[in-house]
Amino acid sequence: MSFDFAAVINATPYLLQGLLFSVELTLVAMIGGMVLGTLMAITRHMGVPVAAEAVRVYVTLMRSIPLILVLFWFFFLVPLLLGHLTPAGRSIPLGPKFTAFITFTLFESAYYAEIVRAGLKAIDKGQYEGAKALGLSNTTMYWSVVVPQVLRVTAPIIVSQTIILFQDTALVYVLSLTDFFGAAAKIAQRDSKLVEFYSTVAVVYLLICSMGSELSERFRKKQGYRSPRGRFERTRRMFGLARP
């Protein structure tokens, strides 16, 4: 059995293009998901009357159904919905890339929301009281006091979640989008070099994700300061609930 290295090397530019999209998608979904997720987590933590329930339903829903199904939902339905909103009433072709960005951001936000929510609960209650006693507004309390601490504490889990996100971007395959995996699959099927390209893809993912895991481990070890009552153990136990 021979391994056609040349074919892989020749295809590298196309593969890199795909990889670029994978990275783009990951970054957009991570940043958007974290912002949205943090807002949702705070909403739920504060117990805002209607919004907190809505967030709970949303997060539960998003975490209970497969990503592929969510991709199908958004891919087919978002253009339809937008079409209803416009006077013409026709469905607007959003472009698969844009749909993917929105879908992944919304999907990941549910997972980030749970991570941040657990972090908010793990922060020593005294921090909230100290801030309130000083008269800080809720906005200031969360922005200047609580969230910075939560982000430090949850950094390893967030990195892990982002690595999972990066792996999940491969699923845009079902929408025929050309991410890193999609690019490899296209060429593999076109040139009948399945072994070469799928193996290469696997190895590259392995390298990237391993490096990411290392980063996560570094974060875990580098916890700069200690809160007076050592809440880290409790946080870590809570975080066993990471999404696969």
């Binding site: 005294g126 801030a131 000083l134 800080l136 507004s137 200031t140 200047s144 006091v145 910075p148």
Partner: peptide, 24 residues
Amino acid sequence: VFQGFNLFPHLSVLENCMLAPIKV
């Protein structure tokens, strides 16, 4: 003043003291 101090660990001592006057 609390039994558990409740200082903000991620801010310096000085920043702890400056935060509320500035924001409130």
